[in-house]
Design a protein around this nucleic acid. Structure first.
Lengths: 197, 197, 197, 197
DNA sequence: CATGAATGAGAATTCATTCAT
DNA sequence: AATGAATGAATTCTCATTCAT
């Protein structure tokens, strides 16, 4: 089609992006094993064979989707975080980051949530996950040593906070509650109460 | 033709039970679509065709597993609840019920957690889910009108509490935290802080 | 059930008869390969295993059905034929025999009609078929040498006459024509016109 | 992407044709239920999965075969029929049409003959059958009102004539008679005698 | 590069037959 | 003798992947 690439930056292949987007959509809705590759292809508007020009296998595609989602989630959580926040403020920043990411990209959030234990995840995917958890763990340790967070294993507090957020997201995702600024404020406050000293 | 029934209650077919157990194990580990029926059969120690003597289809089997797990979870939460508990005590009862169920039957808990949105769930399965959520919602309404629980949509509080528990469970399930009486007490206390008035 | 057989004649096993009847019914309606053996069993009101006490295999059962039908058809055509009939009268006798048999036992007639070329028919079945065709061929030869039948290969005339009857039967079987004494008389007359000298 | 279309008409997929031909062959020999799809595939020289690119199911394939055969039979009977034929001539034309079709495509004729009552035939197949019977019925009515055909329900006469032809065909098909111009002439003459006034 | 027809291994399901009771 | 639960081979159909165009 395009005879030569005149752009200055390596254009990240619109087709590749379309495939990733289609895969995210379908994997998050119908699960990995429940989604045929040709289905992904037609949703992406490409030929079935084209997928294999960009990804070595279906599993490879799923790993790429996973890593992409984790990367974006990490960006939503840590990019642009203002300096010198108090633990309380940092907590709010975190919660709002989750809120924004899961609101603007619900499929990505659901995909991450449902595929953490997928058997096909490779080392790079596990690393991408760690790169999201790391800054959160850092925060927990800092907050705790600053005496702002309850005395308890930080992993415990973290898993409960994140779990609470996931519970909130799923309730919203299935229409049981409405996401509004009030709900955001209220949930954030409640979550903080759970962990504060 | 069994010559005489030696039990008091009609014995619920050991083979059917084995199939349900094997299906729970595999579905919770490898997902529904990712588990071939013959795998379930061999894990259950029966022939592949035998599964279809007890369940009309793979989906039917999954629904049976789901309903069985929900039934047991409900029993763990509501059976034997002492009368005249305070909201605080009732909350603890609930949390301990979740703890006990998810500790003693981690696969059942994981299966429920990961298959709530499965497309193959039928009306009976959705009902079985409602029968678990109902008593919990009842509690939330009572606690709130008794002024013991924070002013907020009960659905919101509930989803966060249950989410927090799921987060805890998953952290334990993947070995990130150790389940001990201290963790139980601490987590229960933290969860209550999240919702109390 | 019945503690002892007090009858004088070897009672031809009611179960065997029920199985043969059920098999005839189903094979004639849904074809041999399209009929599961357990379906035959339940239609016959016996256990699936019971069939194998009377017949070595599904194919064996089909052969038994076939031979039984041929035997009955032969009886309908040749038993009690009055002596010293003219060719014209003998032809009428034949036609009426077909009429009676196919009216009273339409399934048997249809089964024979549709399973003549079945691959599972064994030698005995082929013999049973010959024992039906033989007396008809005999008639044809006699009628022809008596100058009553058209000069043509007897096989040709016979196949057309029988074919005409089958066509008539199928039209009645599918409700396209009504079987009445008039239709019997008319069709017999027409068929005779086809072959008479 | 075929670079250029060398034929005048869109070539009707050689593979689809091969599948139809193989299915006709096997269904007519071993029955529908008695023929595994992979047999059809290997007879057609294609992979098993390929069949499902062209036909939605085995039943769909059988319907396509049926409709194709009916279409061809209809063409053999009604295309190019000269104008202003007498009933006698028209009858001969019909008989010769049957003769030609069944001689040149014996499997198609046998398939139609044996699958008329198949449970899987859909509306289109039933329509295709009607489109063959219609012109024949038309002829019968015309011939009868012209006083050339015996007074009797036209359905009756028709079913007997076609039945006679089928009888003839089957006798030839199983080698009991030889198809020769003499047999054609003789049988046509005999069949006419059956129905003429 | 892109395609989508083709494939065959593998999935769900059925069924002829066996066998413990 | 009779049963029907159990089985696994066979059947229909799907789908990840390839490859000729």
């Amino acid at each position: 089609m395009k005879p030569r690439d005149t752009g200055l930056v390596a254009e990240p292949s619109a087709k590749r992006e379309a495939i990733l987007a289609a895969a995210l959509e379908l994997f998050s809705e119908r699960s990995f094993a429940g989604t045929p590759v040709p289905h992904v292809a037609s949703r992406a508007g490409v030929g079935a064979g084209t997928i294999y020009r960009y990804f070595a296998s279906k599993e490879d595609l799923a790993n790429a989707v996973y890593q992409r989602c984790q990367r974006d989630l990490r960006a939503a959580l840590v990019s642009g975080v203002p300096p010198n926040l108090s633990p309380r403020q940092e907590f709010r920043w975190l919660w709002c980051g989750l809120w924004e990411f899961s609101s603007s990209r619900p499929r990505a959030f659901r995909f991450l949530e449902t595929h953490h234990h997928a058997s096909y995840l490779d080392a790079a995917s596990r690393e991408s996950r760690a790169s999201v958890e790391e800054p959160i763990s850092d925060f927990a340790r800092r907050a705790q040593s600053a005496g702002a967070m309850r005395e308890a294993p930080p992993e415990l507090l973290l898993s409960m906070v994140l779990g609470a957020f996931v519970g909130l997201f799923k309730a919203a995702d299935t229409g049981r509650i409405e996401l509004s600024p009030e709900v955001l404020a209220c949930s954030e406050e409640a979550a903080w109460e759970m962990v504060r000293a």
